[in-house]
Design a protein around this nucleic acid. Structure first.
Lengths: 227, 227
DNA sequence: AGCAATTATCGTCCTCATGACGAAAAGGGG
DNA sequence: CCCCTTTTCGTCATGAGGACGATAATTGCT
């Protein structure tokens, strides 16, 4: 392999969740140069014998203390512009993870701290490397994919109400949705959600049926964003 | 960079076109080991100072003699399973290109020959490396994306008729579409196509209006595949 | 020229999905 | 028990899309 140009390969994670009615991304504060002290996407180098999805899962658990039991993980895109990393030629494979709200992450093994930050309140230029671009692409992908897939359920706990699912859509899209039409749409799309048989207790208002995510992988017809 | 595992990075291209009512992919016959003599996706190593999109465009023109004037090129996914290349740890960034039918490609600079092969007539295990998986993913992406984007026009010459565009959909999806409803849908979706003002001459039947692709980047509402 | 065959384009009917909204159901708190 | 909140069911109007008839505008044949 000495005849071919040597690259370093990393994985970076765009981990999104919905916390207190805001779309939040998991960021770590860098403890080492370059970009020391700046926020960055969690990620790291891929082992020479490690498969790419394995590296993504490892970084997710390792650097954030979060497991990936529920939730969703998919490849986002690959970024390799020369000069994007001052240490040399680094190509990064970015992944998109959607998780339910699991509370605050624990700090990683290095001294860096990790936390959820609302994506709408990030100032331009606040992230290390080209991570702002990667984050933008990830948010864009998530907004588009909840339209035609049941992926919005990945933001919910295993059992959830229609109203919780609606709050996810409203937060991800930044719009308000009519509760009655949303209810009809969700319960009427085959395989989107299935009733668990129980209801909520002790909340305000009429108790709501509990659902789990259904077997559908695509929504027919899609959930349309209001124009 | 000596402290990080060294990878080789390549680009591979899934170049699709519609030829004689079949969805065809551009393949090259490998002239060197490994997989010598087998069909493979066109591609090659990324230069140490080369950006990824540049490498994809370079390989597209270099190894196939095709330019990318019309048509469409987008990143598909990245594949890096250890062992996918017997020469060592190679991560490949795959790209999807959609082109109008430009005739037979010229052979590349090495002795390998290049040709269009119908995707439906490829036998399993016929392609080198993990290129069969990459091709499958590319075809899947194309089939899905013509639903909600105007990308089917990338398979057409700069000026085309509604019937030609319909033939593209029928070929890509492998279904028949009603000419009248298709015509209504295409001409009624804002920004999908715009009339050029001229019509075809010398063909059989009533002359058809010529169109070029419109400015829309997303189809609202999408072109739905018949269930 | 006249006619058949072919293809493009327009129009009609019906069904279904969806947006806007009213109303009833089912709980908690005074 | 009344009020407030939230869920859930209905109703109506609008618009998109599938099925299909009808017409327009050519070429090819006799």
């Amino acid at each position: 392999m000495a005849e071919y140009p040597p690259f370093a390969v990393t994985v970076d994670l765009v981990v999104l969740t919905v916390r207190s009615d805001e779309l939040a991304v998991l960021l770590v504060r860098r403890g080492v140069e370059p970009y020391r002290g700046r926020w960055a996407l969690p990620g790291g180098f891929v082992g020479i014998d490690e498969d790419l999805p394995d590296a993504a899962v490892r970084e997710l658990t390792e650097e954030t203390g979060l497991a990936e039991p529920a939730g969703h993980l998919e490849q986002l895109a690959t970024y390799g512009r020369p000069g994007r990393d001052p240490r040399g030629r680094v190509v990064t494979v970015a992944w998109l993870a959607l998780l339910p709200d699991l509370g605050s992450p624990v700090a990683g093994t290095d001294a860096a701290s990790a936390d959820w930050l609302p994506v709408t309140r990030l100032a331009p230029g606040q992230l290390a490397f080209d991570h702002e671009r990667i984050l933008t692409d990830g948010v864009e992908r998530a907004r588009a994919k909840v339209e035609y897939t049941p992926l919005a359920t990945a933001f919910c706990p295993p059992e959830f109400t229609v109203a919780q699912l609606r709050a996810v859509y409203e937060t991800v899209w930044g719009t308000r949705l009519d509760p009655r039409n949303f209810h009809r749409k969700v319960t009427g799309t085959p395989g989107f959600v299935e009733p668990i048989g129980r209801s909520t207790e002790g909340e305000r208002g009429r108790p709501a049926q509990l659902f789990r995510r259904g077997p559908a992988t695509l929504l027919h017809p899609p959930m349309l964003r209001p124009s």
